[in-house]
């Protein structure tokens, strides 16, 4: 009975038990994105579509309505929120003394954060699936005219982007949780981060009209890169929405993915350092 490379699945298993067992949390996490789509999305789209219908659509470009445009943003936002708070369970583990059982076991400590990370990623996948299904019911026109094979590939592409992004933020959240004492502290930090990350991005509106500083900042925002990836896979490489034309080259999308992957890798190194030095008694 020596340590194997698979103990992180143990942590994953427990996290998933918690996910389905905390009923209130489960339902709110599944309902929240649907509510965003149903209320914010429908309300905003009726306005935006009114403003932007005056802008002529260039010939040969697919026009995309606002609800469809922002559905990608809701996918990104939900992934951001879920991932930022995903490390919270570690904080509870630590405060309730449960962390000691894991730290005193022979399991390498990186498995704790990878288990939590994979569980958070799974939660995001479930949420994203629900948003897409519910969105399509509401009239979101994802995958316009795509053949079946391309739809499958597109979904996989969206999951790859969501996966890399959520892993990065889950590891970040885990690091913060290991260094903090109280859930209130985590809540404070995460709320502070959520606003700029969410609004200085292309999730809800085009960044073309931003002042130059915000535009530059948004280019560094991982959320912008996630949204780019989701829109590329869901809407295609050339479309027109909210009065602006969007074109993505393969290079753009690969760059966005690489950006998220590097972000996740840096967060992994940070988290590993924190976990290896953590002393919890």
């Amino acid at each position: 009975m020596s340590a194997t490379a698979w103990e992180f699945l143990t942590v994953y298993w427990r996290e998933m038990i918690r996910f389905v067992r905390f009923r209130a949390q489960l339902f709110s996490s599944l309902l929240q994105p649907a509510l965003w789509m149903a209320f914010f999305g429908v309300a905003m789209s009726s306005n935006f579509d009114r403003f932007t219908s005056a802008v002529p659509v260039p010939a040969g470009v697919v026009p995309v309505d606002y609800l469809t445009f922002m559905a990608a943003g809701v996918i990104a936002m939900t992934t951001l929120f879920t991932s930022l708070f995903g490390g919270m369970s570690l904080l509870f583990d630590k405060n309730w003394g449960l962390m000691r059982e894991m730290l005193a076991s022979p399991m390498p400590r990186t498995h704790i954060m990878m288990g939590v990370g994979l569980a958070g990623m799974t939660r995001s996948f479930i949420q994203v699936s629900i948003i897409m299904a519910f969105g399509i019911l509401l009239g979101v026109q994802f995958f316009p005219g795509f053949p079946a094979g391309r739809i499958v590939l597109s979904i996989l592409g969206i999951f790859a982007f969501v996966g890399a992004f959520s892993l990065g933020f889950l590891l970040f959240s885990s690091t913060i949780s290991m260094r903090l004492e109280t859930p209130e502290g985590l809540q404070g930090i995460m709320t502070l981060l959520t606003l700029p990350l969410f609004f200085v991005s292309n999730a809800l509106y085009p960044i073309q009209a931003f002042p130059p500083l915000l535009q530059a900042l948004s280019a560094y925002n991982p959320l912008t890169h996630l949204v780019n990836g989701v829109r590329y896979f869901a809407l295609g490489s050339d479309f027109f929405a909210v009065g602006a034309r969007y074109t993505y080259t393969t290079g753009d999308v690969l760059f966005s993915f690489a950006y998220l992957a590097v972000f996740a890798a840096v967060m992994y190194l940070l988290a590993r350092r924190t976990f290896q030095r953590a002393v919890v008694t």
């Binding site: 020596s2 340590a3 103990e7 894991m102 022979p106 399991m107």
Partner: peptide, 8 residues
């Protein structure tokens, strides 16, 4: 959970 932590 404990047994799996110790890779039994």
């Amino acid at each position: 959970f404990h047994g799996r932590l110790y890779a039994l």
